[in-house]
Amino acid sequence: MLAAALDGGRNGGGGEAVKRCVLAAWLLLLPLTTMAQDAPNWFRPDGGWILVGVLAVGALVATGILQGRAGRAIETRPIAGLVAAEDAIGRAVEMGRPVVFVTGTQSITKPGTVAGLSVLRLVAEKCAETGARLIVPCIDTIVTRIATETVEEAYRQAGRHDQFVPDDVFFVSNRQLAYTAAVNGVIEREHPATVFLQGEFSAESLIFGETGSRAGAMMIAGTDKETQLPFFVTTCDHTLIGEELYGAGAAISEDAQLLGSLRGVDLGRAAVLALVALGIVLEIAGVGWLRTVLGG
């Protein structure tokens, strides 16, 4: 490469200046290569087409987002838990009891937590409109901060900023069992009419579900943790199953970009189905190429 670049430089011609620049840049960058460290490869020659996979998934999601931005109507199927949320808040107003919202027991880096905060926005807006008291105990300091902003903004938009109580959105503890015990206590003492459990949960899901049911609260749960869904399905009135939680976030916001990304994920699912179908056809035909691509 160096020799070719030097040769190009001697022969002159229209591209000479460009070639000299490339050479200079290359010589400048050379010392940086000594700083390079070993790292896992993105593209493995022995099979795993990870880069292709990442680009394909990215392209599908981008396609969905572009469709959304271009104004293409994207409808989401109705999610029963969301439809029930409005009635549940109305119930709280009628009973004169508060609404408790738990945004899961994970940090903000988890997609489930982000989706839970989207649902919180809807619930906070409805509570602000109807005057229901909203209590949000949090397990993470960053989530507490974002939840406070979300709820405060909802009250401000509803023109009832004076009714926003900062102390009702609070950090409890980031130890799972301590947090669980404290939320149990809040539910038992405050007797909420409705409890929303929206986000990523672990072993505490059943405890929350049981405590809420026992307190006579209407329970609307949603989580992307497949291992916790059975407990919500059995103890709660409505459950947003897995990706319905993400769908809820997009559907609530009616944001073209979010709906588009949901569309993109659906395209990804269709691609996976096509991949599996193609793989089976190739297997039956005795062609092992796709196995190699997928790392087999």
């Binding site: 795993g48 087409w49 990870i50 996979g53 996976v272 991949l275 599996v276 793989g279 089976i280 297997e283 039956i284 796709l290 196995r291 997928l294 790392g295 087999g296």
Partner: peptide
């Protein structure tokens, strides 16, 4: 990739 492969291999 591994789960898609596993599903395909299961049949194959």
């Amino acid at each position: 990739f591994p789960q898609a492969l596993s599903t395909i291999q299961g049949v194959g």
